[in-house]
């Protein structure tokens, strides 16, 4: 998809509207959760991937609705919480905010460009990790290390995977 530099920063409301089929909203988050639960068990080097987060970012960016984005983030986050040993709400709050802000970006900017998607994926991963770290300290009174170097590295890797994933998910969209 080629865009001029001016077109790249236009609001998406100026472009053609594309929507997901309803089943995508159930199946894709479920697959992301399953991936997170199942794949690192056999491929430990994929531990760094936060597939639910990438799905939240993508769905929120493309839905153009902040309310839909925050609910998508909340539901996926709570599902992830349910399958972890954390109290319910830790991932939920983080991903709610990620969903809201990603949707806000999606409303105001065109996010079809791969480079912008890379940047957004990286930024939201780092934001998610920082927020989670703060919540662990403030709400759970834990002392996790502030491992920003790993976050930067994993953010970059997640961004690369995210860009590929977004490209694949684009094919599931139907233009209205």
């Amino acid at each position: 998809m080629a865009y001029s530099s001016g077109r790249m920063l236009l609001s998406q409301s100026d472009g053609p509207v594309s929507r997901f089929r309803a089943w995508v909203f159930i199946v894709i988050p479920l697959l992301a959760i399953l991936f997170q639960v199942y794949v690192p068990q056999f491929f430990h080097f994929l531990d760094f991937l936060d597939m639910p987060l990438l799905v939240v970012v993508y769905l929120s960016l493309t839905q153009r609705s902040q309310v839909a984005g925050l609910f998508t983030g909340a539901l996926i986050g709570l599902a992830q919480d349910s399958l972890s040993k954390n109290p319910l709400g830790m991932f939920g709050i983080c991903k709610t905010l990620v969903g809201y802000f990603a949707a806000s970006v999606g409303v105001h900017f065109n996010v079809e460009n791969t480079f912008i998607r890379l940047l957004l994926s990286f930024f939201f991963y780092f934001f998610h990790q920082c927020l989670y770290w703060v919540m662990q300290r403030m709400l759970l009174a834990q002392q996790p290390p502030f491992d920003y170097r790993s976050w930067l590295l994993f953010g970059a890797l997640n961004a690369v995977v995210g860009a590929s994933l977004f490209h694949f998910l684009d094919k599931l969209r139907a233009t209205v």
Binding site: L30, L34, L83, P87, G89
Partner: peptide, 30 residues
């Protein structure tokens, strides 16, 4: 939504109890 989740979190941390039903739904679904 954030407030509701904070509340959920606070209840769990304060009572040291889990909201079992939500976990059960998710685990049973997955």
């Amino acid at each position: 939504v954030i407030f509701a989740q904070f509340l959920l979190l606070a209840v769990q941390v304060k009572n040291d109890q889990d909201v079992r039903i939500i976990r059960m739904w998710t685990v049973t679904a997955v």
